[in-house]
Simulated assay, not measured.
Amino acid sequence: ELGFSFAAHSGFSLGELSAFAGGGILDDETLFSLVTKRSALMDEEARKIEEIQGKLGMAAIIGLDYATVEQALREAQIPGLYASNDNSTTQVVIAGLQESIAQGKEVLQAKGARRVIPLKVSGPFHTPFMEGATEPFSAFLETLDFKNPHSLVISSVDGDVIKDAQQAKEHLAMQLAKPVRWTEAMKHLSSLAKEKHAQVAETGFGTVLSGLWKNSNAEIPCRSLGSEDAIWNYKKELES
């Protein structure tokens, strides 16, 4: 409404849906129906797994990169534990069974993790535990009208550009059980920003993503535009 033009869009986890809306792939009505269906399916799947296998959770690993965490977990062969979020070069989230997270904590601290922080979430999202929700979500996606993007959309599933409507549906379905590769998305966005002489901004609530961006040591800073006041102040800066 204020006339800003966007060179590209990307979103973290649930924010991927917002990025798809921003890029013209889906309208607001479709966006909200997707949010509702996605959350219900993921919650249902987490509850089913917890009833069968035990308490589930997630924890942030501070001080290690994704490749190090993934390799350490693979070598340790801890059942029911996965690297689920590649947040930055120094922050990774693991998810799975609570007892497996406790085992993983010891392994990763031995690898040099500075802190292991339990997260208040209701399930092991973005891991194979969510595969049971992928098929019904994919079927739901096929009933919706998606458009080809009118501007660049970078998926956090793999850091690649979404080229058309069908690829958008496939990525949203995959996203439930695949790790969030936010570091890859940030690399792509940073490269685009330099190429197009664009600025980078976090437009969602809070400052989590701008903080992760800062930790990535990108040449171009990321400003937080998560409030109406911040957006108006940014507009005034551009006009001065």
Rank of each mutant, 00 (worst) to 15 (best):
G54R: 09
F20L: 15
A40Y: 12
K37S: 11
Q71C: 05
F4S: 03
F12C: 00
S33G: 03
V35E: 06
G63R: 06
H9D: 04
A8M: 05
F32V: 13
L31Y: 10
A46G: 05
A67W: 11
F6L: 12
L14H: 05
E1C: 04
A67D: 15
L2C: 05
A40Q: 15
M58N: 10
A67F: 10
F32H: 13
E70L: 15
A46P: 04
L73S: 04
A40T: 07
F6Q: 00
L31N: 02
Y66H: 12
S39N: 10
A8P: 04
Q71T: 11
E45Y: 02
F20Y: 15
S33I: 10
K48T: 12
G22W: 05
L26N: 08
L2D: 09
A67Q: 14
K55D: 04
E70I: 02
I52Q: 13
S39T: 06
S18E: 13
G3L: 06
E29G: 08
S33T: 12
A7G: 13
V69P: 00
L17P: 00
V69F: 09
L41D: 05
S33V: 08
G11E: 06
S5T: 15
L73R: 01
A59E: 13
L2M: 12
L2N: 09
M58L: 08
V69Q: 09
A40I: 06
Q53Y: 12
E29M: 07
F6K: 01
A21F: 06
L14A: 04
A40R: 14
M42K: 08
D65K: 08
G54K: 10
V69H: 04
I62L: 15
L26M: 14
F6P: 00
Q71S: 14
A67P: 03
D27W: 06
V69S: 08
A19T: 01
D65V: 09
T30R: 10
Q53F: 08
L56N: 03
D28T: 14
L56C: 04
I61E: 08
L56K: 02
L34R: 02
K55G: 03
D65N: 15
H9L: 05
S13I: 01
L17C: 05
L17W: 07
G57C: 09
F4N: 04
M42I: 07
G63D: 12
F4T: 01
E29H: 14
L64G: 03
S18L: 09
L64W: 09
I62E: 15
G22A: 13
S5Y: 07
G54S: 04
V35R: 03
E50H: 09
S10V: 02
G11W: 13
A19W: 01
L34A: 03
I25Y: 05
K37P: 00
Q71P: 01
L14P: 00
L2E: 06
G22D: 08
E1T: 04
A67I: 08
L73C: 07
E44L: 12
L17F: 13
E16I: 07
L31T: 02
S10E: 02
L26V: 13
E51Y: 05
L41S: 06
S18C: 12
D28R: 09
A67T: 11
R47V: 14
G24Y: 05
L26C: 12
E50T: 11
A21Q: 15
A7V: 14
M58Y: 07
E16D: 13
T30H: 10
D28G: 05
L17H: 06
F12N: 00
D65S: 07
M58T: 10
E45P: 00
S33R: 14
I49G: 01
L14K: 02
S13Q: 01
F12R: 00
